[in-house]
Each structure stands twice: as C-alpha cells, then as structure tokens.
C-alpha cells in the first residue's frame, strides 16, 4: 500500500502513473488536413445546392415572364397601331389647315404615371375626338359642298 496514503479513502482519484499511456485515438495530421479541406468542400457543395434551388425558382419565373412579355408586346403593337391610325387620320384632316405647323409622330413618354393602359388608350381616343371636333365646322361645310 502506498505509505503516503493515510486513510482508506482517496480524496483524489488515482493519478496517472508516468509510465502509463492514455490511449487517446490520436488524429493524424493527414486526417486533420482532410478535415479542414472538408470545410471548403462542404461550403462549395452548400453553395451549389443553394444555386440549384434558386435556379429552379428562376427558371419558373423566367418562363412566366416570357409569357407576360409576349402579351405586352402584342398589346404595345395594338396601341402603336391605334396611335398610328389616329395620327394618320389627324394629319389628313389637318392637311387643309395650311397655317398649322406640322410635327412628327410623337415619341413615347414613359414618365407618365402608371395607370391601366386602357385609360391612356381612351384618353388618346378622346383627344382625337376633340381634335376632330375642333375641325368640325369646316368639315361640315365641305361635306355640304360635296353633297
């Protein structure tokens, strides 16, 4: 028995003898190296996954937007066509008004406040109507002369 031991009970758990070697499964440098590299590999994989998910989302949206673009493109064409017809009619009617300084076809003004397109279309129709009305008297006379 250890002569230093004074009681039957040890207050401190028995200490490791110098000769004993605690069997700790020591991790080798190679394993450690690969562990650290795995941080990067995992990060890359995580990023790839994230991108994949987002790409799937985007793919859906792109398909939807393309459809909408096709619609708006048609709509635009109709508006342009209507505008052009009105414009041609207006020019024709203003032909006799020699005093009037003629101008080119108006440029689109994108700064207008966002409103449904129909409203603008209607306003355009009404403006044309008003223009026509302003020219009406003469037209009426002419028509009478023709008749």
């Amino acid at each position: 028995m250890n002569p230093m031991m004074t009681t039957m009970f040890e207050s401190v758990p028995s200490q490791r003898q110098s000769e004993e070697v605690i069997e700790v499964p020591a991790i080798s440098a190679v394993e450690r190296y690969k562990e650290i590299i795995a941080i990067a590999t995992d990060a890359a994989a995580r990023q790839r996954k994230l991108d994949e998910v987002r790409c799937a989302e985007l793919a859906e949206r792109i398909a939807a937007t393309q459809h909408e673009i096709a619609e708006v493109r048609d709509r635009e064409r109709v508006v342009r066509m209507g505008a052009a017809l009105h414009w041609e009619a207006a020019v024709e009617q203003l032909w006799d008004e020699r005093w009037l300084q003629m101008v080119t076809f108006p440029q689109p003004d994108e700064s207008v406040p966002p409103r449904p397109q129909g409203e603008y279309n209607r306003v355009m129709d009404l403006a044309y109507q008003a223009l026509e009305d302003s020219l009406a008297k003469r037209t009426l006379l002419r028509r009478k002369q023709k008749d």
């Binding site: 505008a83 994108e110 397109q117 603008y120 008003a130």
Partner: peptide, 25 residues
C-alpha cells in the same frame, strides 16, 4: 382651338405609347 386639341392629342399618343413601352421594358 385646333392647336390646343392637336397638342392634347399628341400628348395622349405619347402617354399611351409610353405607358405600354414602359410596361414592356
């Protein structure tokens, strides 16, 4: 009167064209 109506008409055309162009853009 004619000048005013024609000006209005021009602005209305610009607005109609502009609105749809912006939406498209």
């Amino acid at each position: 009167k004619i000048e005013t109506a024609f000006g209005e008409f021009q602005r209305a055309v610009s607005a109609a064209l502009g609105s749809v162009a912006r939406e498209h853009r």
